[in-house]
């Protein structure tokens, strides 16, 4: 069971209170982009074994989207932050590096 802290209301949410939203920090490829780039945006996901950036919505709570970083193997949560953050904040990256020394960065 995952427990994520909602950065908006500060509640430690049980997974069942949340709705998953897939991989975070995807760059949208809109009209004018190449077919290959649009296909990659639609279908290609990192799917790592280890550190993963995800979108979650506090669906049964404040209703806000937020981002979370967790390990897909151990379910360890490295941190959560607001959805209006284009890149992982420095303190989140530091928290990941402290726990996963060999982490190669976001794929």
């Amino acid at each position: 069971m995952l427990i994520l802290t909602c950065p908006y209301c500060g509640i430690q949410c049980d997974e069942t209170e949340l709705a998953p939203g897939g991989e975070a920090h995807l760059k949208r490829e809109g009209p004018g982009s190449s077919d290959a780039a649009f296909e990659a945006y639609l279908f290609e996901r990192a799917n790592p074994m280890g550190v993963h950036f995800e979108r979650w919505r506090h669906a049964n709570g404040c209703g806000k989207w937020f981002l979370a970083v967790r390990s897909t193997t151990t379910l360890e949560v490295y941190g959560t932050y607001k959805a209006q953050t284009p890149e992982p904040p420095a303190e989140i990256v530091a928290a990941i590096r402290a726990r996963v020394p060999g982490w190669g960065g976001r794929a």
Binding site: G61, C62, G63, K64
Partner: peptide
């Protein structure tokens, strides 16, 4: 009367 915080904008 009461005012309750529901979300950061509600």
């Amino acid at each position: 009367r009461a005012v309750a915080w529901m979300s950061p904008d509600e």
